[in-house]
Write a protein that binds this DNA or RNA. Structure first.
Length: 490
RNA sequence: GCCGCUAUGGUGUAAUCGGUUAACACGCCGCCCUCUCACGGCGGAGAGUACGGGUUCGAGCCCCGUUAGCGGUACCA
């Protein structure tokens, strides 16, 4: 930490870490790292009804998976409620806030009347005399503490790092509530109080906070403390342009879904970074370090981006570009970095063997290298990749139909098995020579044997170049599978 | 209702101080490669920049209005 920059990610633990939250965390992280600053994690759990420890765990787990480590925290907002109240009372003492005795019903009626009259409703509480005040407090009448917006003509102005200078007239800001009737603080206050206490210098959050910023700025000013810089980020919406939510979109709106689906965190981060930001040139594939080095707020878009959660194309279970990006990472990532990422997925599918990290390590690396070329998620290694790691795999009926339709294969498979079994060296070249020779002798196309073998060895009709498949699966398993496949021929 | 933010192909973005035929990527289509499917290579369709005015020699970029979307307008966060 060699700079005074302090930023925070402040999620509410009311659900899962969703995509928008992940991007907010990412931008905070990028900026902190770029500036040599501090990245703080704060859990805004003041909504007791909806906050759960489980949600906290999910958020921490999500950040960990993404590799967005924090330097301070997690701080829990509920742990400093007393400090937040103290801030409200300080404002009360300095005359920047007051006790307001209006009931909810009275306010509702006022609001309704204003709306019907089509005039702006900007609540201004009654100015009570000390006498009246004493009277009410003696009678134990409940009150809330409201911020007293300056009564004179004037504006609040702040410069948003993304949206530019923002100005709002005092007259358009109502006297908002700081403390409820029961004395508990509201979000607007707690948020500011924590940001001050944690010495946050840059508030980087979703664009939905933009409208609240004038009010929060007023609080900073009334307290006589420096106002942080704000950077509001455009929102991430679904294809119907509504906000992403677990309730509406299910798991696909959460970060955990992408981990389960076999996304590489690097690819996921890369994709969401490009939702609302670009490096300014034509680069699309950027590592975290590259993004950190070139990130600037002024290259942030002002427009909400659409994340295509569930495109019409059945081949794509989420945004096609996200899948494409993941496949790019799978294909090009250094193999020794990819292998450890694969382990948990293979373990979960029951395909992992410890030998992959021991005796069979070279074979494992080579096999992954051969098959990754056409995979799009890490999960593909457990489905399409299964025949390479296990002898128990299914035959795809379509593949059988397509590649086993020639009955001659009933004789050809055992014959090929015999030839391959006899090979003293089992290489790309020797296998190809044996196969082509057999095809020639029997006067069949090599393609018949090649495509038939693909299905015999993998159960599938698609896959890597066949001679690579022979050698990765290995002589003895190839021979056995060719012989066993005869029973599958209709 | 009121206050504010936004508006470039289906999607994500680009387009120096306004300056030729609005660029790139994903997706889609076709061709090539080929033992299959991908990858890769080549090519194509797809926006005249929400709409309407204005300023200007010239507007996607500036101004005004309209519309639409989003946010705020809570003793929610």
């Amino acid at each position: 930490m060699n700079s005074s920059v302090r930023v925070r990610f402040a999620p509410s633990p009311t659900g899962y870490l969703h995509i928008g939250g992940a991007r907010t965390a990412l931008i905070n992280w990028l900026f902190a790292r770029q500036q040599g600053g501090t990245f703080i994690l704060r859990i805004e759990d003041t909504d007791l009804e909806r906050s759960t420890q489980e949600a906290v765990e999910t958020i921490l787990g999500g950040l960990k998976w993404l590799g967005l480590g924090w330097d301070e925290g997690p701080f829990y907002q509920t742990h400093s409620l007393e400090e937040h109240k103290a801030v409200a009372y300080k404002l009360l003492e300095s005359g920047h806030a007051y006790k307001s005795y209006e009931t909810k019903e009275e306010l509702d009626a006022l609001r309704k009347a204003a709306e019907e009259a089509k005039v702006p409703f900007t609540f201004r509480g009654k100015q009570l005399t000390a006498e009246e005040e004493a009277e009410r407090s003696a009678a134990g009448i409940p009150y809330v503490i409201r911020f007293k917006v300056p009564r004179e003509e004037g504006t609040v102005t702040f410069t948003d790092l993304v949206y530019g200078e923002q100005t709002k007239r005092y007259a358009d800001i109502e006297d908002f509530v700081l403390l409820r009737g029961d004395g508990t603080p509201l979000y607007l206050l707690s948020n500011v109080a924590d940001d001050i206490a944690q010495r946050v210098t840059h508030v980087i959050r979703g664009q939905d906070g933009l409208s609240n910023t004038p009010k929060q700025t007023l609080i900073y000013q009334a307290l006589g403390v420096p106002v942080p810089l704000f950077a509001h980020l455009p929102l991430i919406l679904d294809s119907k342009r509504t906000k992403l939510s677990k309730r509406k979109h299910g798991a696909a709106a959460t970060v955990g879904f992408y981990e389960d689906a076999g996304f590489l965190p690097e690819a996921f981060l890369n994709f969401i970074a490009l939702l609302g930001w670009s490096p300014g040139d034509d680069r699309e594939i950027l590592s975290l370090e590259e993004m950190r080095d070139v990130f600037t707020f002024d290259r942030m878009s002002h427009t909400n981006a659409i994340f295509n959660l569930a495109p019409a194309d059945p081949r794509n279970f989420t945004d096609p570009k996200a899948i494409w990006m993941n496949s790019e990472y799978i294909k090009t990532m250094p193999i020794d970095q990819l292998l450890p990422r694969l382990k948990p997925y293979l373990e979960k599918a029951g395909l992992w063997r410890d030998a992959f990290e021991g005796d069979e390590a070279p074979w494992f690396a080579n096999t992954v290298n051969v098959i990754r070329e056409r995979f799009r998620t890490l999960m593909d290694f457990t489905t399409y990749g299964r025949p390479y790691f296990s002898d128990e795999f299914e035959f795809d009926p379509e593949a059988v139909k397509k590649n086993f339709k020639d009955a001659a294969l009933k004789d050809l498979f055992p014959a090929l098995a015999d030839r391959l079994e006899a090979l003293t060296e089992f290489t790309h070249e020797t296998v190809e020579a044996a196969l082509r020779q057999l095809a020639e002798e029997r006067d069949v196309k090599a393609g018949l044997l090649i495509n038939g073998s693909r299905t015999a060895l993998t159960g599938q009709s698609v896959g890597p170049s066949m001679f690579d498949v022979f050698t990765t699966i290995g002589q003895s398993r190839v021979v056995k599978r060719l012989r066993d496949a005869v029973s599958q021929i209709p």
